[in-house]
Write a protein that binds this DNA or RNA. Structure first.
Lengths: 340, 340
DNA sequence: GTTGCGGACTAGAGCGCTCTAGTAGGAACC
DNA sequence: GGTTCCTACTAGAGCGCTCTAGTCCGCAAC
């Protein structure tokens, strides 16, 4: 159906429909200025030729690209949820998304570079690992939204989960179940670990309980090591709020290996609502980041910035407790023995 | 540093360096035709102005975009590995990658549409769910490479894992460990299940053993149900090759819950080498798809097609056995009792 | 009959590049 | 001194759109 072997252009469609190129443009942009009859005729001509507007030319011709650039880390499954949510959040705003993956062979600054070369109007960085100074530099050039990472960088918007609140929810959930001797296996120096520690500490104090933090980390081995320490040192412990799901998995494994039942003898709660936590035979109670809400707020911020508003203060989204099978009522005798 | 509030253009750089726009283009394209001194002067001028070539205009001006469009499914972690591998495979060929995500709110044909609008020269579809006829239609318009899915569609290249060989490797591994009573928990109607079944059957026959297939599926519950059936009906079973890791996890859970030790009493092998399988306390022996090789072959096919070659026959990449802790020597007595 | 107006449509100048064709000027050769 | 060749550079025509500033025409108002 096509004249040359190159794809049909607007010119071709115009010729076939017997109108000017500008009119074809009007029709394909759904802009006012064409009669219904002509509109139909043009669209028919386009369909006959297999015409597909050229996105590059469209972006070039337009004074604004209406493109939001998103960097994401490819193996990070939560970024998948975020991207999905970003698509639906961007839809009604008239902005389009351009994705740029970060991978071992393609570092973050390269990914960002590529988005800038496409003249994205704003940058949305998912859990960026860039130095704060590099992020601030980007913020100076373009509206920049950092999602899911706490960064102190001037001129940059931050949208993240309220990690402290996540641990508050975890602790309150356990307290509600009658637990009093609740430890926190922390994330060491991992991103977010400090906030989670603080959230745990505050929630424990508010409940009149004594906080006890065990050094952990982001991996299973960290959780496993912490569990061994708990088994050895703190016999009264009836519940653990662990830094993340991976660590919680290691923790659970050691606890069960030692003959303790979960949740009868000890309750465990993770963080992330990862695919592992959701597995039927794992069924880990955990704290879920709210991808949908994070995405909505991130797009909102981007649009706000593009309409001239200055960067706002950090936007914080509350996470949600996913109550599953690794938490249950505190064992009766333990509450008696350790209580007070 | 910039003149107007729009980003600097080639024109601006040319003016500042005191040369023509064409010369700046030559320098930024690393094309021959500029002296070293001028080159340096132009680059300096560009740096002063914070110049960044406009990718849209660059693509438009060029007769070829040198862009390979990739669709991927966002929550699918294996697609992450593939994307990473595609980036490194594409690097040396001079082609660039354009990503388009498939998500619940953005279906596959929409993702493809967007790639075509960017005038990608070839399409690389990761595990597409499109109907074969739709894929064939794409193949008629553009060179199209389907990765990680067995599709019969004329004019389309297919690059996929040799699933039958995966099960052959699994069976041979188990046979080498002395197992004779090896069941296969299959994937039912899931993609790839038929090949894996056939691979299992052939490998068993070649080893002089009797194949025994238990209906399974792609989820944990399927594996769990299959395990219950094995425990009830086939006491002699010493090993199971399971359709995928998820199903294997459910299988393991039930087996262990019934007091059987893994791998002492029964060996289990999964498929996918998913992140769950890699977890330290799981340590599931499994069959890994070779993302790096799949990517290399996919890019090769794309480049071949773009240099005018016709679609080739299906390219099949062998998977790799990841021997971990859920497989071990067959229990001695069982080999005696069931053997022969 | 003139004017005004609004809807339908067109002309043509960009957008920021690439790339072909061509020029200037110096060195080499006879 | 003329021709050839080469290197370094420039002019200018695209690429396929968008969008501003029109033109044209029919109709209503006066």
């Amino acid at each position: 159906m096509r004249r040359r072997d190159r794809p049909a252009t607007m010119e071709d469609v115009a010729a076939r429909a017997g109108v000017s190129r500008a009119l074809v443009s009007i029709v394909y942009r759904d802009a006012p200025g064409a009669s219904d009859a002509t509109r139909a005729r043009v669209l028919q001509a386009g369909a006959d030729l297999g015409y597909r507007p050229d996105h590059r030319a469209r972006l070039l011709g337009r004074q604004r690209t209406r493109l939001l650039g998103v960097t994401f880390d490819v193996p990070h499954s939560f970024h998948g949820d975020l991207i999905e949510a970003l698509y639906s959040a961007a839809e009604p705003t008239g902005y389009d998304l351009a994705l740029s993956a970060v991978a071992p062979s393609r570092d973050e600054s390269r990914a960002v570079q590529s988005l800038l070369e496409y003249r994205c109007e704003a940058l949305i960085l998912l859990g960026p690992q860039l130095r704060p100074s590099a992020i601030a530099e980007l913020g100076a050039i373009q509206p920049t939204i950092v999602v899911a990472r706490k960064v102190r960088a001037a001129g940059v918007d931050v949208v993240r989960t309220d990690d402290a609140d996540g641990l508050r929810q975890a602790v309150e959930h356990l307290v509600r179940l009658g637990h009093r001797d609740i430890v926190h296996v922390d994330g060491g120096t991992a991103p977010g670990a400090a906030e989670r520690r603080a959230g745990y500490r505050n929630a424990m104090r508010r409940a009149g309980l004594i906080p006890r933090i065990i050094r952990g980390g982001a991996g299973e081995e960290d959780g496993a090591a912490a569990a061994r320490r708990v088994l050895a040192d703190s016999a009264g412990t009836t519940a653990a709020a662990v830094f993340n799901d991976r660590s919680a998995m290691g923790f659970l494994d050691v606890i069960r290996g030692a003959g303790q039942r979960v949740p009868d003898d000890i309750s465990v709660i993770g963080y992330d609502n990862s695919s592992i936590a959701r597995m039927a035979h794992v069924n880990l109670t955990t704290i879920a980041q709210n991808a949908r809400q994070l995405a909505i707020v991130a797009i909102e911020q981007a649009v706000r910035r593009l309409s001239g508003a200055p960067p706002s203060t950090e936007k914080i989204v509350a996470p949600t407790l996913m109550s599953r099978c690794t938490t249950g009522a505190a064992p009766a005798e333990s509450t008696d023995l350790t209580g007070g």
